[in-house]
Nucleic acid binder design. Sequence first.
DNA 1: GTGAAACTGTGATTTAATTAACAATATTTC
DNA 2: GAAATATTGTTAATTAAATCACAGTTTCAC
Lengths: 207, 207
Amino acid sequence: MMLPERTVERLSEYRRSLLQCLEEGKTHIYSHELAELHHNTAVQVRRDIMFIGYTSMQRKGYDVRELISVIGDILDSEKGLNVAVIGVGNLGRAITTYFVGKRSRLNIIATFDVDHNKIDRVISGVKCYPLNRLKEVVGTHNISIAIMTVPADSAVEVSEHLVEAGIKGVLNFTTIPLNVAPDVYLDEFDMITSLEKVAYFVKMTKK
Amino acid sequence: MMLPERTVERLSEYRRSLLQCLEEGKTHIYSHELAELHHNTAVQVRRDIMFIGYTSMQRKGYDVRELISVIGDILDSEKGLNVAVIGVGNLGRAITTYFVGKRSRLNIIATFDVDHNKIDRVISGVKCYPLNRLKEVVGTHNISIAIMTVPADSAVEVSEHLVEAGIKGVLNFTTIPLNVAPDVYLDEFDMITSLEKVAYFVKMTKK
DNA sequence: GTGAAACTGTGATTTAATTAACAATATTTC
DNA sequence: GAAATATTGTTAATTAAATCACAGTTTCAC
């Protein structure tokens, strides 16, 4: 059974708050507390947790450690998944340095670029390969997810190589909407759109 | 009347495709063509366009130039809005260099940081100010939108300063969910969550 | 140990977003 | 110029997501 997208997002967010709680020595947490940390309601939290089949000790709130583990069982792949960043510009570097070491089951293990000055350089312990070795490296390192941060004008071409190389999930940060094979999961994030959306709602609430 | 969030997002995306069309000399476009460029359906496109009250010459598709202008009337503020980037790390730099010059009605006109090595430096024509001058600079330059790319541990504090300084829209790239005053529009984007979501759906479709 | 209070879990309802269905209209074909 | 075709605009139906309402527990106060 596949969870709703929004629920998956929220679970990921809950988990991070929960890890934080653990560090602070908090062993139990109420639905309304978790809700407060994430701009949403206690009912929503309970519903999300219900989806993953976890039940608390009533009246004591959820056991933080247990809940983290249950969310892990849902979200994480048993053996972890390997990730590559395609395009080592400012954004690619930001993402790479940002991620490394943050999630044990989701490792960035390669970056790719066409620029000879970048190839073979190491950023936060991750080596940069030439883009034309994509298929080979994806194969040998068993990479299944790609984060695309290439310039707009090469986005389409690169995405085709990714699919061909056997990538199963793409997180697209370019402003070009991509088309991938139907068995490849695609999530797109467009900064211009996000900013224009904020601008629209700012404009509208001013009135 | 306020448009649905998703519609606003799609309109922003359509506009960019339309601008592209214009460059290529295409004067009219059918709903199904626009749909194809954005992983969605012709009906969805027509509904979105219906929302903004534009009607085409039937059977010829939408007039590209006119549609761009109508979308502009909806999304843009007449005088434009000024934007600041808070936190000049890798991500802040990426966003700044990326945006400058891209949208005429939405200008990044300042960045802020606490690091003395960054203060007074100019990136893509945008000057970096010390964070303690936030309120002053926001006032004098009439900045209404902030893009937050500061480290997680200072996120909450900085967001409070933003609200106090009179910011009306926040685009939060930190992994800390923020609480802002109810009249401030907040959009959050969390890379870890995005990546974990991709990983979840990759894992699930493998099975 | 009884009643009040504090939470959770979930069926029922509501709201938001998408999709289906099709009438209306313009264009082309013959 | 009538019939066939392609496309839009919109009402209605469907689906997905969020919220309400409340019964069921456990705990606490006395």
